[in-house]
Design a protein around this nucleic acid. Sequence first.
DNA 1: CGCTCATATGCCTATCAAGGAATACAGGCC
DNA 2: GGCCTGTATTCCTTGATAGGCATATGAGCG
Lengths: 103, 103
Amino acid sequence: MVSVDAFAVLAEPTRRRILDRLRRSESSVGDLVDALGMSQPAVSKHLKVLREAGFVTCRTAAQQRIYRIDLRPLRAVDDWLGPYRRMWAAHLDALERHLDSQE
Amino acid sequence: MVSVDAFAVLAEPTRRRILDRLRRSESSVGDLVDALGMSQPAVSKHLKVLREAGFVTCRTAAQQRIYRIDLRPLRAVDDWLGPYRRMWAAHLDALERHLDSQE
DNA sequence: CGCTCATATGCCTATCAAGGAATACAGGCC
DNA sequence: GGCCTGTATTCCTTGATAGGCATATGAGCG
C-alpha cells in the first residue's frame, strides 16, 4: 500500500508502453494483452503496479476491467523536472541573446 | 557501453539526489560522498551509471574528478512527457472555458 | 621512486523485480 | 447451479542491482 516511487514505475518499458496506449484511449486488459503481445498475467501485474502508484484507474464493465490513465503522477514527475527545465531555458535565452548581439 | 534507459537511471533515488546536487554546482566525488553520507565506492558506482547514460560529464582537476551535469538526457525525458503535458493542458483549458461560461 | 590522496573497480551477498505456468476469482448466461 | 469469459493472484525461477569491504589505479609531491 506504500506509494511506490513514480520513477521506479516508469523505469519499466512495458509500463510506459501501457501508458502510451492508455493516453490514446482507455482499454480493457485484453486489449492491452493484444497490443503488447505479452501474457495476460504479466500485463495484469504491470497494471497493478500502475494502479497502486496512481497512474491508472479502473472500472468494471461487465466481465471486463477498463483501465484509464490518471495524469497526476506524471505531473509530479514533470514538477521534478521543473528546475532542470529552467536551466536549459536559461541556456537557450543566453544563446539567443548571443546570436542577437552578433547581428 | 549500451546506452541505458534514462528512466532506469532516474529510478534510483540516490542518483536523483546526485543530480539535484549537481544542478546547483559541479562537485568532486568527495563532495558528493560528504553530501550523501554514503560510501565512496557506492557514489562512484552511481556516477559511473550517470556518466554512461550521459547525465554527467567529468573532468580531471589535479587528483580530483569534477562532475558536472549534462541536461540532454533530461530533455529526452521531458520530450517523452510532452504528449501527456498536452493532455493536462487541454484539461485546464477546458476547465477554464467552463468557468468562463459560468460567469 | 616511494608515499599519499582521490577515485575506480572487483568480489560478495542480499534484495528485488519480471515473466511464465498454473490456478483462483468474479461476472454474465444457460 | 454449472459453465464460459475475462482478469487477478500465487508460486517459482532467473536476472539485475545496490551496497559494503578490500583492493587497484592514477595523479601529485617529497
